[in-house]
Nucleic acid binder design. Structure first.
Length: 637
DNA sequence: CTCCCTTGCGCC
DNA sequence: AAAGGGCGCAAGGGAG
């Protein structure tokens, strides 16, 4: 089934705004007519020949007719970063047609063919996957075709020139997509993984327009609370010549801590400077009992979270002007396949706060203000947030990939891997520990926490030193390195196949020159295995786990897409192993049940040729704000 | 002033 | 010899 030219049509829009040029990158502005599609172009095959057409200032009816034509004729719409193009008709009231149409993205196919880890490269130095980067590589004689295009000049001359350019984009997109499709198809699983991933394109497109409604009062309240917190810590330090300027600067803070106050240097940065990070501050409190260090840590935390989350949210709501923030999802944005979200467009003075750093938004770890953050994000009126979360995702995929019998058994119903590991560490009875935990026993709770720490930390090759820091700072466990070394030993002894998996992956990936997931997604690992051995090995180990998690998420979205249409629900956002939906209030129970059934029974075999030895289940939570989701109670229904 | 690097830290 | 992985964002500091 090579690429069928008669079943694909490439599509590209140019967009502009009469209010502000920057709005032409913000599809939701079309909701209020503050930005518009200035033209669109298509390329398709007719009687074996390519035909390109363009339409200036398309009306909503014209866009509707185009989408309807594609649906009626079973044409797949092909674009370059096409979620952006698909978002505009969503904003113009055509979301239903966008969701029903088929979409494919040449840029994403290219990525599937060529992605590498790109260790240590800053964002600007990474390979660009833009069409403007692809054309010179594959059609060198056509390089520079995009020069001198003015996107906002609506004069007849500029428009005519732009329409030609618009069509060229669709020609290149068609040719490249066909090429990449056929290359991927040489290994059908790779193409299949890419095609499943592409199913989420219209969901992501619609989510750009939907946005996340914000409880501004809550954001202001959080801002105040963090203000109070930082002021309080600053007061506590008032007699020690401390200023915000010093505390905000790692360099100045290092001088204060280690020269002025004479505290011991516990850790250095990669560049050899004395580190002032929160681990160091945490340890200065615990080892030297210096309470000033604790105040410094709390101050820095409050200030950092205030600007990043509270102030950032208020800024974004203000910029968007309609009560919503709109972090932009990026499909396959990490080399393992995961999505990322960005909250800014432009840089420097031109930086626009379109959204919030949703993948970093503080969650509830039990600290005082933790639960105030996610409460800022609301369901729109008439909707409820429904979250499906892949239960123990990385643990389960490691169990499957390693084939470790104990891990696999712990994934069966009624088992609790963290209690198991806790019981191994403190040498008590596993079932008894589960019982005590159910009864709310405090000691048992801590023992389970230790097991959880071990299960989540030692899956990869973390050393005892870093693991100790993690246990102390992140899990607030009062432990020392020799003890954590013994915990690590218990872990590796309990799941012996994990280390075998590491060795097998390293051997296999070096030989093949790539790593791959169960679904067929790959990353290229050709490189200097002598010099960069550790990094390449780590990718060989990590990629199949994190990557298949991404594949699983895309498969879940692909299955949910047609279902959500039938109940009027929408994709809201995602958090790697969690999918957040907006569900009409009166459909929540139905979606909690039917959605869970669909996700617990994803067609892994049909999609990937994979029959799971264990159940891969999803947990469900529902609520009116992101911060107040509650486990859905299946028992009482 | 802008650009880039470093440090630090939030999430999975 | 020793080394978890994957990201995006904020702020300071230095170079140009």
């Amino acid at each position: 089934m090579t690429f069928d030219r008669t079943k694909h049509i490439s599509f590209d829009e140019e967009t502009s705004s009469t209010v502000d040029p920057e709005y032409s990158l913000q599809p939701f502005r079309a909701l209020k007519g503050e930005a518009f599609v200035s033209s669109y172009a298509v390329t398709y095959f007719k009687d074996g020949k390519p035909v390109s057409e363009a339409c200036a200032m398309p009306s909503v009816d014209q866009l509707r007719a185009f989408l309807q034509h594609c649906i009626d004729n079973d044409l797949t719409i092909v674009g370059w970063n096409v979620a952006f193009d698909a978002a505009w008709p969503c904003a113009l009231g055509l979301e239903d047609l966008v969701m029903r149409a088929k979409w494919l993205d040449g840029m994403l196919l290219w990525k599937h063919l060529t992605v590498t880890p790109e260790y240590g490269l800053s964002k600007g130095k990474r390979k660009s996957y833009s069409l403007k980067a692809a054309v010179p590589e594959f059609f060198p004689e056509r390089a520079g075709y995009e020069e001198d295009i003015d996107f906002h000049d609506m004069s007849p001359e500029a428009t005519a020139k732009r329409l030609v350019y618009n069509q060229k984009d669709t020609i290149f997109t068609f040719k490249l997509t066909e090429k990449f499709y056929n290359m991927l198809e040489q290994e059908p699983a790779r193409l299949q993984a890419a095609l499943i991933e592409a199913k989420c394109i219209p969901m992501v497109a619609a989510s750009y327009v939907q946005g996340l409604p914000i409880d501004v009062k809550q954001a202001e309240k959080l801002y105040e609370m963090l203000d109070n917190e930082s002021m309080m810590q600053l007061d506590a330090l008032s007699e020690f010549n401390v200023t915000p300027e010093i505390l905000n600067s790692p360099k100045q803070l290092a001088k204060l801590l280690f020269e002025d106050w004479g505290l011991p240097v516990l850790k250095k940065t990669p560049k050899g400077q004395p580190s002032t990070d929160k681990e160091v501050l945490h340890e200065l409190l615990n080892t030297v009992q210096d309470v000033r260090a604790d105040a410094v840590r709390r101050y820095r935390e409050a200030v950092g979270n205030q600007s990043k989350f509270a102030e950032g949210t208020l800024d974004s709501v203000k910029y968007n002007g309609d009560g919503c923030v709109r972090p932009m999802a990026s499909i396959y944005s990490t080399y393992t396949g995961r999505m990322t979200f960005t909250s800014k467009q432009g840089k420097g003075k031109n930086e626009r706060a379109i959204g919030i750093p949703i993948h970093q938004m503080k969650g509830d770890k039990g600290e005082k203000l933790d639960k105030e953050y996610r409460k800022m994000v609301l369901a729109p009126p008439g909707y409820t947030i429904v979250e499906f979360d892949a239960a123990g995702q990385e643990f389960r995929w490691m169990a499957i990939m390693s084939g470790d019998q104990t891990m696999l058994e712990l994934c069966m119903p009624g088992e609790d891997p963290h209690s198991f590991m806790g019981s191994r560490i403190v040498q008590c009875d596993y079932r008894e520990l589960i019982e005590l935990n159910h009864a709310g026993n405090k000691k048992a709770k801590n023992e389970r926490k230790l097991g959880k720490f071990a299960n989540l930390s030692f899956q990869y090759r973390i050393g005892a030193e870093k693991a100790t820091v993690k246990a102390r700072v992140e899990y607030k466990l009062d432990v020392r390195q020799p003890y954590i070394q013994s915990v690590k030993d218990v872990y590796l002894k309990s799941y012996p196949r994990v280390q075998d998996y590491w060795q097998n992956q390293i051997f296999k990936c070096e030989r093949k020159g790539y790593a791959e997931t169960l679904a067929g997604r790959r990353v290229d690992l050709h490189g200097d295995w002598r010099r960069n051995g550790w990094s390449l090995e780590s990718t060989a180990i990590n990629f199949p786990i994190q990557g298949v998690g991404a594949d699983q998420k895309y498969l879940a979205l692909a299955v949910l897409r047609p279902y959500l249409l039938t109940v009027g629900a929408k994709f809201f956002f995602e958090l790697h192993d969690g999918i957040y939906l907006l569900v009409p209030d009166d459909k929540v129970e139905q979606v909690a049940v039917e959605g869970k059934w669909l996700l617990d029974n994803l067609p892994y075999h049909k999609a990937w040729g994979f029959a799971s030895p264990i159940p891969l289940t999803w947990d469900c939570k529902v609520g009116k704000t992101w911060g107040t989701l509650k486990e859905y109670d299946y028992g009482s229904k």
